[in-house]
Design a protein around this nucleic acid. Structure first.
Lengths: 227, 227
DNA sequence: GCGCTAAATGCTGCATACAGTATTCTTGAA
DNA sequence: TTCAAGAATACTGTATGCAGCATTTAGCGC
């Protein structure tokens, strides 16, 4: 059975010995995604370090890690700034994600077990419940988990890896996305179709729906972006 | 015109102010790719730092960067080890690369200018010359540059980004690949077809050839891998 | 009052120092 | 000889200090 976690935490089974590094990376990443550190912000090492209660050294290491992830940009002699994505860049990312998810869909329909698909279905049902109750944050996280989950069904670590990376870069932007109620309803309906196609193991249909879904995701966010 | 560099160095136009970080990252990466630091090796910060003539601090930051790139693995309290890829992982990476390159091929045939394609052709011709003269290292670098170049023709930064990342992880392995003379000859012939399809802007054919090419790339390397 | 220059402040980049943990070596007994 | 336990060593993880660069502010001429 393939791992399907909301938090793609590899080896979450074993105890966490001690890893300040991971803690800082995760914390910083969340601060960026949740908008505490808006795009364009210069990261002041002294200030953030004091805020997190750590010295500059491990903080700097975490920043370098996030720089490689593409969330921050390293400017020589001026530190790191939170990366800002323009409309074209976002569209590009979405198109790559579409390509990856469609590839994943094909594989998933071929090799996924019923249990695997059932796990996705459970996530979906939970997500629909959040939709009905208006729990936006939780809905959003489950939404991401479903997409990551389908990708995970393909059983390809490299695929999950790059997909997760692009998804992370887009997280802050997609969070803005589902604004209007009717758009939100559409998104839920699309997901419903997705799950149905997955359960029917209909590669072509799943692929088509995913493609459409991401096109609509683009429609939802594009107006809130700078050129 | 899209950038087509053997070294995918963004903004190589502007002067390099000072960036020990980049220097160390590049150096370390090369040491891993070229096999100076074989997979499984524990990176001794003191030793490598002394060897490169830098203190541990910037070296550690570079290591974290490469960890995010997937070239090294961070083991708590035991530092970093050079990541070793098994056969399945390599196959997975190749399949993702195939997906990405095929997507790129479609776009490239649509939007690339004749100049762009001419640049790729030049790289190819140079590569063939290296093949004839037996300049393996240069051949290898040009080979990578051609693949990166075609991807770059799609004009999608995120695509180039993830493709480059996976290609980097595979570099050391692919370098082992082209061993036998007849296999090498095959690879060159495939490339010839690729360029022809690109010049004809034949999306389908280019895509098919790229797919075949990567399948054969897998055939070339798979035997030299651990399970 | 406005623009330009220069001092002063703040921050980054790098090195070093120290504490804690893993690993290796040594010593002793079975 | 082999194994085990403890000491010694080596290395990682984190903090701190200092030098150099960027930015801001103050002073001065116009």
């Amino acid at each position: 059975m393939v791992a399907v976690n909301p938090q793609p935490n590899p080896e979450s089974a074993r105890i966490e010995r001690h890893s300040l590094h991971d803690a800082i990376v995760t914390r910083l990443r969340d601060m960026i995604i949740e908008g505490h550190l808006p795009p364009g912000t210069r990261i002041n090492e002294g200030q953030i370090g004091a805020q997190l209660g750590v010295s500059r050294t491990p903080l700097r290491e975490a920043i370098k890690y996030l720089a490689s992830e593409g969330l921050v940009e390293l400017v020589p002699s001026r530190g790191a700034v939170v990366k800002a994505f323009g409309a074209k860049e976002v569209l590009d990312m979405i198109e790559v994600i579409r390509t990856l998810e469609q590839f994943a869909a094909t594989r998933a329909c071929q090799i996924a077990t019923s249990n695997d698909i059932g796990a996705i279905r459970d996530l979906h049902d939970e997500m629909v419940a959040c939709y009905r109750s208006g729990d936006r944050l939780r809905y959003y996280k489950l939404n991401q988990a479903i997409h990551s989950g389908i990708v995970a069904l393909a059983g390809n670590a490299a695929l999950s890896d790059v997909h997760g990376m692009l998804q992370t870069r887009l997280k802050r932007i997609r969070f803005i996305g589902h604004e209007g109620p009717e758009k939100w309803a559409n998104a839920v309906a699309e997901h419903e179709e997705m799950i149905a196609a997955l359960e029917a193991r209909d590669e072509g249909r799943l692929s088509a729906i995913l493609g459409r879904h991401l096109t609509l995701a683009w429609e939802r966010v594009k107006d809130s972006l700078q050129p």
